[in-house]
């Protein structure tokens, strides 16, 4: 199974992405998805997407990306977390099945 490279972004790459990193790490562990998480500022996403499979962000996306991009504010507000988790897991499985 392909090891996924996942970008986790927020505006400053310091606060909300730190929280989301942990949530995504736990989620992938639970689901046995092998992934490498990289914490970035959203401004870096455009230049880093080539080497990555998925982008998970707590900010609005300033542009469109060539890789699947998921907004993850739910991890901060606690609203719609189950749906968000499913979206992340489904996307991960999809990428793995294409590889």
């Amino acid at each position: 199974m392909k090891k996924l490279n996942v970008l986790v972004a927020c505006g400053a790459g310091i606060a909300t992405s730190t929280v989301v990193m942990k949530k995504v790490e736990d989620l992938f562990k639970e689901e046995n998805i092998d992934a490498n998480l990289i914490q970035i500022k959203i401004a870096e996403a455009a230049s880093k997407q080539e080497d990555a499979d998925m982008l998970i962000s707590t900010t609005v996306l300033p542009t469109t990306y060539s890789i699947p991009s998921i907004k993850a504010m739910g991890f901060l507000t606690g609203l719609g977390v189950d749906k968000l988790k499913k979206e992340i897991v489904d996307t991960a499985h999809e990428i793995q099945s294409e590889a």
Partner: peptide, 17 residues
């Protein structure tokens, strides 16, 4: 300090929720 305050940030998010 990026990464360093994970526990505090988790507590903060739990507080917000």
């Amino acid at each position: 300090q990026p990464h360093a305050q994970l526990e505090m940030l988790q507590t903060l998010m739990a507080t917000i929720q």
